[in-house]
Design a protein around this nucleic acid. Structure first.
Length: 609
DNA sequence: GTAGGGTTAG
């Protein structure tokens, strides 16, 4: 039996393709298959659904004999949201030629297409059309323009439209302007605009939070989220995803878990973006088993989700598991992306799986047609370098289709140092210093190569050069989460309110280590500093401050979790191993590139990092 | 029937 109700009104807010087909069948049955209004509504349903293929949408439209602007606008809307937004403008020209008029609804879709493409010249042409047809005063059209210029980074243009007539603004105008500043990393301007907003909705808040997080001001992002929740505002998926990403980047396990509990308590639907953000958060916070669990709980998984877990396993040194997962991913019939291979190759290099790494690198190019990017070369150079195959690594670099970046040379240099390729190491080190003369790390690496060759005069010379040239030394920091708070330490810092206690604790720890027969190691790199002074410098590395603080505030049964921005230095690595042995305490350090699990005097990285 | 925010990477 066929319903006597108008069929399209039965469609849910976001209809599936099969629901649309059913509605279409009903239209045919009712003899409405060529009705401009009915087909227009069917196209509107297609526009808010994600599934219908464009070929279907075009075929529906073609059934209308003399299309009106309503039907045409809805086709534009479908095209603007589709895979190839450029088609929107192609259709717009055709529609103008065939005599279909435009109205105020037409332009927002055209501008959306130009933002998504993105195409500055075409968007500017649309702007002239807007002027020509006299829609400059329409709020939706104006917002479309603001958003278009904002996404293309043309903030001055965007601002012109925004400022033009202030009484014709609503929260969307403000949000689009805000998003423009955020996207262009003008975070202070964005902050000011946010404070001035007459009305803020969920999107205003999440845009600002996202702005902080994407520009690396992570703590502010978390704080603003706290304020948002504290004000009793409803959060949405985008806010949760963003704040999980901030927790992940900072390694805030407690906070990330708290956000997870909000999701569970509010019975938020587990979407792919949220699930992926959870997988990533647990992996980056050192809980790979919870990451796996979050992955398993996802009702559906796309390549992003798989990539997050593969990459997570790789940073945890679980290379075999990552490869197993990759094979599962392939057998599910999904297409790997270039990021998938970053994870796979990284897994191989972290676990020393030489043949597998070579195999997957070749397969990536041959079987999947993915061009190697800097990251892939980085993994390969690391993999070959670790195996001591320095000549092969060098050959790979020399055969690259893109010009190698400093990080790549740095990886090679690290391998030269480990395997005593002194001459090549010196060449590469000098090259690196030429490329980035302001980067202190390069001088330190070159000095360490000279030190290895016992060329002390050269060590002194490089350090002298560094003191003249080196400027942009990245300040090392370590952080630890305790009592719902974030504690950040800088090397030799005294900013923390418990600093004197922390330095005392370090001394007590050192003393216990000495009693157990451990003498502190000092790297030869610091050769030109007096022994006593060296000891002071190393003692105050941010990582030790964090570990000492961990001893003070983290319960005996729990591991001490530290997140740091730079790589672990050999002295601190050694220190952490000894502490884990003498105090029977697990220490988990996430450094700039991987995890170190210190337990019983050993580290999960097997001392190669 | 219109516009704005989100996840993966050495």
């Amino acid at each position: 039996m066929v319903s006597t109700l108008p069929p399209l009104s039965l469609l849910p807010p976001s209809p599936s393709f099969s629901q649309i087909l059913q509605a279409h069948a009903q239209l045919v049955y009712l003899g409405l298959a060529t009705s401009r209004a009915a087909i227009g509504h069917l196209l509107a349903a297609c526009a808010i659904s994600s599934a219908p293929p464009l070929s279907y949408i075009h075929s529906v439209y073609r059934q209308i004999e003399r299309p009106n602007v309503f039907a045409a606008n809805n086709l534009l809307r479908c095209l603007a949201r589709g895979q190839s937004p450029r088609q929107t403008l192609v259709f717009y020209s055709a529609m103008r030629i065939s005599g279909v008029p435009t109205n105020n609804y037409t332009f927002p879709f055209l501008l959306q297409a130009c933002s998504r493409e993105p195409s500055i010249s075409e968007g500017a042409q649309v702007h002239t059309q807007v002027v020509k047809f006299g829609f400059c005063e329409d709020l939706y059209v104006r917002n479309g323009l603001i958003s278009f210029y904002s996404t293309c980074g043309l903030l001055a243009e965007s601002r012109k439209v925004f400022d033009h007539c202030p009484e014709r603004r609503d929260v969307v105008s403000w949000n689009s302007m805000l998003a423009g500043y955020v996207r262009s990393s003008e975070i202070e301007v964005a902050e000011k605009l946010f404070d001035r907003m007459p009305e803020k909705d969920v999107i205003s808040w999440s845009t600002m939070i996202m702005g902080y997080v994407q520009n690396g001001v992570l703590e502010k992002g978390i704080d603003l989220f706290k304020e948002m929740v504290g004000r009793g505002m409803a959060v949405n998926e985008a806010t949760l995803v963003t704040v999980l990403s901030a927790s992940a980047q900072l390694g805030l396990l407690e906070y990330g878990s708290f956000v997870h509990s909000i999701i569970k308590d509010s019975r938020f639907p587990m979407t792919m973006a949220l699930g992926t953000a959870l997988v990533d958060m647990y992996a980056k916070c050192g809980r790979i088993e919870l990451s796996r669990h979050a992955f398993a709980e996802m009702p559906k998984r796309d390549a992003f989700a798989w990539n997050a877990l593969i990459c997570g396993l790789a940073t945890h040194g679980q290379g075999r598991e990552a490869l197993e997962l990759f094979h599962e991913f392939i057998s599910e019939g999904l297409r790997p992306t270039s990021v998938t291979f970053v994870g796979v190759l990284n897994a191989c290099s972290r676990s020393g799986l030489l043949d597998e790494g070579r195999h997957h690198f070749n397969a990536m190019v041959k079987d999947y047609g993915i061009k190697p990017e800097m990251e892939h070369y980085g993994c390969m150079v690391d993999l070959l370098g670790r195996a001591g195959l320095i000549p092969e690594a060098l050959e790979l670099i020399q055969g690259m289709s893109i010009s190698p970046d400093p990080v790549l040379w740095g990886t090679l240099l690290g391998a030269c140092k480990t395997y005593g390729f002194v001459d090549l190491g010196i060449l590469v080190g000098k090259r690196l210093i030429e490329l980035e003369p302001g980067h202190d790390g390069h001088y330190i690496l070159l000095a360490s190569i000279y030190a290895k060759a016992r060329r002390w005069e050269d060590v002194v010379e490089v350090r002298r050069l560094m003191s003249i040239q080196g400027t942009n030394k990245v300040a090392g920091w370590s952080l630890i989460e305790a009592g719902g708070k974030l504690h950040k330490f800088l090397a030799s810092g005294w900013a923390h309110m418990d600093s004197s206690k922390i330095y005392k604790t370090i001394e007590i720890i050192e003393q216990r280590l000495a009693e157990a027969g451990y003498l502190p190691n000092i790297s030869p790199v610091l050769h030109d500093i007096e022994d006593e002074e060296k000891m002071q410098v190393i003692k105050a590395h941010s990582e030790r401050l964090a570990i000492a603080y961990g001893f003070m505030v983290i319960g005996q049964g729990s591991p001490i979790r530290v997140v740091k921005n730079l790589r672990v230095c050999p002295d601190c690595h050694d220190f952490s191993k000894k502490v884990s042995k003498v105090f029977g305490r697990e220490i988990i350090v996430r450094d700039g590139s991987r995890f170190h699990y210190f337990k019983d005097g050993a580290c999960s990285c097997h001392d190669y990092w």
